[in-house]
Each structure stands twice: as C-alpha cells, then as structure tokens.
Design a protein around this nucleic acid. Structure first.
Length: 426
DNA sequence: TCTGGGGTCCTAGGACCC
DNA sequence: TCTGGGGTCCTAGGACCC
C-alpha cells in the first residue's frame, strides 16, 4: 500500500447545504428537504429522506417539481452567505485540531494527520463529534495514505453503518477489500466518460484500475488517470495544497434570471463578473495577462440555433484593476453581440495569471494599473468584503432582469442583524 | 408560461511560420 | 498549381468536480 508514513484525512460534510438549512429549522428535521443551485436551476443537495423518494441531485428543478409537490418536500434557494459562514466556522475547528489543512471546497477539507500519535480512528471521531457538537453538521471522515484513497475511505465512512462515520484505510487487507468493493465510476477523478471507456477494457472496480500499467493509463486518460492509478496504490501524486491556492485561471459566469436580448443589460452583468473575478484575483495577489468574454443562447431550446459568441483580449501588461478590465470587457461585448437573439448566460475568464510579485513594469508604456485606480479598487473591495457587495461601479446598475432567481431563499441567520433568530423566554 | 448550475484544469488539434 | 514536414503557440472543447 505504498508509503504509510504519511496519512491524509478527508472531512466531508453530509449533504452540506441542506444540513445548514436544518440547523435553523428544527421543525423540518428528518423531513424531505432539497436545496437548489443558482437561479433555482438544478437540485444540488437533498437530505437522505428526499433521496429515498427518488429525487436526483443535479437534475433540473422544474422536471422534479411534480414529485416535490406531491411529497411535501421543503425547497430552498441557495443561500451562499449562510453556507459560507457555517463553512468558515467548521474549517476553523479543523484548523484548531490539525496543523496542515487544505480547504478543498465549501464542504470538504483534506488534513495531514501524519503527526497524530493517537489512534487515527479515535482522532477521526474526535473531529466528527466536535463539528457536530459545535455546529450541528454531520461529517464523515476518511483516512488513508493518499487523497484519492482518502476520498474512497470517506465514502465508506458514510456507506457502511459499522464505520459510524469514520473509516481508516491502514492495512493491505482493508485496502484490497475496499478497492474491490468500489465501482470504477465511484473513484475520484473517474467521470462518466472514463468509466465507460475503462469498462470496455474490462476494468470495473478500483482494484483492477490499481493494477493497470502506468503507461497504459497514460494512453487512455492522460496524466490525470495515471495520477489516479498511482494514488490508488498509495503513492502520492496529488499533493496537499495548503494556504491559498493560486488559480491559473479565474472564471465568473452565471445564467440570467430571464432571457435577455438587451445589450446594455448584458454589459451590466459582464461588469459584475469582472468585479467578482478581480476580487478573487486580488485575493491571491495576482495579475492577469488576458481576458475571455462570452455570451450564449440556450443550448437546451434548439441545438441548431445555439450560439456562444466569444472573444479574447491580451492586455499590454498584466493587470488586476477592475475598472480597466471592465471597460475592455464591455467593449468586447459590442464586438461579439449578435442582435435579435435571446441570451441566457454570460461570463468572463481571466487567464495567463501570474503573481504580482513576479512581473516587471513595461518600460515604454504608461502603467495601466496606475497606483491611483488600484487604490480605489482595493478600497471598494475592502468595503464590499466587510458590508457585502453594496458599492459598485456606475455601469453595474441594479437590474433585476439579469440577477438570478432565488425565490425560496432562507434568511441570513448569521450575517444580517435583522435575520438573527431570536429566542423566546417564557 | 417557461424553466436546464458554476468552476478548474488539461489537451487535441488548428493556425501559423520556417 | 498543388503539395509537403515539423515545430510552436494558442484556444475551444472535453472531462471532471462539487
């Protein structure tokens, strides 16, 4: 099973969004609850009670409306301010318990547990119990020598009742047993395409994939699959990414609340996306060398008429200033906009990102991101971070048309004074 | 009535040049 | 007039994840 000196734990919250909603709604505990994605488009989380009646994750909401209404299912729009606040509290707990923590997503964290001297199963239960006691969120813990195996162990922690939420993969017998039990499609990094391809080759479970020659895996699925094969054998190929991970590319895109054919409204949406992306860019102290802007019509309506006009632009020098980037992005919309079409989505991506510390100013051009505009952007970002996105560039006029639908959103229990729950003392 | 998420990384293949 | 090799750069699209 490879190097057993280092061990990684994956802590994963169970049906996180719906679990968060339940914290503040004890009246619907053990009931059928689902949470929708942005724009109330798809179902992205559902309690096991909702799953049991056949509700599917990532399927469109409107297609499941009938079963939802017939079964008295409680539905919430996504409340990211709330989920983010609870997530931060949980991540703080994990950081108190371990030295090295990688926050992988809003509801998952990898932890280096190599230096834990006590029994790892006990340690896993300690984490799980503390998160439950302090935040009332159920969590599963999987512990193994690599990230891919930790993912697998985590699934086992929830699947096997005997594990009681904690599964440690620390010997060959367990490894062999779990790999044989794990279907190929359930391995982290193997999606529907790859699993279909591998099944054709006669590989149906993780144990068989682990035995594949690296060169063959490389041929079938590129570097990513070859890494997965190494990881399954206990050889680290995906490192623990602690601290802030610097993105090579930052995307902000979103579906509109309703179909749009008005160019000025689309421009307002684009300038919001620039604003979002720049915030992330500045957080990693990065600068971008180029931008890509696109708009698209619905791919579901009629594939024949689907269009996705896009355009890229390279800046003279790497930039991070939202005013500068947004003025260019808006001009790009003029170039790509095809009139008399209804658009459903728009987005931008900042690419060729590097660290601000590593670039040198161009000797011959006036620095585009002059100190002055940079300072303004920074101050606006600071204010918005503190008080929510309330200060915006004039081009970002408030317009309900492109803003997403969130008809069923819960209160901001943790981040808004007027929404904080009150307790009646009798 | 209509309605279908968002983000990241990798790479095959096109465009261009010598 | 038409065709040819091989290298580099770039990007749209593929695949995956939550």
């Amino acid at each position: 099973m490879g190097d057993e000196q280092t061990m990684i734990a994956l802590c994963d919250m169970e049906t996180f969004y719906s679990s968060v909603e339940l914290i503040f709604r004890p009246d619907i505990i053990n009931r059928r609850v689902v949470v929708l994605s942005n724009n109330d488009g798809c179902i992205v989380a559902c309690t096991k009670e909702a799953k049991a009646i056949g509700i599917q994750k990532f399927a469109p909401y409107f297609k499941q409306k009938e079963i939802i209404e017939r079964n008295d299912v409680t539905v919430f729009s996504s409340n990211y301010a709330l989920y983010g606040a609870v997530s931060m509290r949980i991540m703080n707990i994990l950081s108190e318990e371990a030295q090295i923590v990688e926050i992988y997503s809003i509801d998952e964290a990898f932890i280096d547990v190599s230096d834990i001297s006590s029994c790892l199963t006990q340690f896993g239960h300690k984490l799980k119990d503390r998160v439950w006691r302090e935040q009332k969120i159920p969590m599963g813990v999987g512990i193994a020598p690599t990230k891919t195996l930790a993912k697998m162990a985590n699934k086992a922690s929830k699947h096997y009742k005997k594990a009681n939420g904690v599964f440690v993969l620390n010997n060959n017998a367990k490894w062999q047993w779990l790999c044989e039990k794990t279907a190929i499609a359930d391995v982290w990094g193997i999606g529907p395409r790859l699993s279909a391809r591998l099944e054709k080759e006669g590989i149906t479970n993780a144990a068989q994939l682990a035995n594949m020659e690296i060169t063959q895996s490389r041929r079938i699925g590129g570097v990513l699959l070859s890494r997965t094969v190494s990881e399954l054998n206990g050889i680290k190929a995906i490192t623990l990414n602690t601290g802030s991970t610097d993105r090579q590319q930052i995307i902000s895109s979103r579906s509109f609340g309703e179909k749009l054919n008005c160019i000025s409204t689309i421009k307002a949406a684009i300038s919001t996306h620039v604003f979002q992306a720049c915030r992330k860019l500045q957080r990693q102290n990065g600068v971008a060398r180029s931008i890509r802007v696109w708009i698209e019509t619905s791919a579901h309506d009629n594939f024949q008429t689907y269009i996705c006009p896009a355009s890229s632009w390279a800046f003279d020098e790497p930039v991070s200033d939202q005013f500068l980037i947004s003025s260019i992005a808006v001009k790009m919309i003029d170039q790509i906009f095809v009139p008399n079409r209804y658009y459903t989505k728009a987005g931008i991506s900042l690419t060729e990102i590097s660290s601000r510390a590593n670039w040198q100013e161009n000797l011959f051009t006036k620095s585009e991101s002059s100190r002055e505009t940079q300072d303004i952007s920074k101050i606006i970002n600071q204010i918005n971070r503190k008080y929510g996105g309330s200060i915006v560039k004039p081009a970002r006029q408030i317009c309900s048309k492109w803003e997403m639908r969130r008809d069923l959103i819960s209160p901001n229990y943790l981040t808004k004074w007027s929404d904080i729950p009150s307790v009646k003392c009798t």
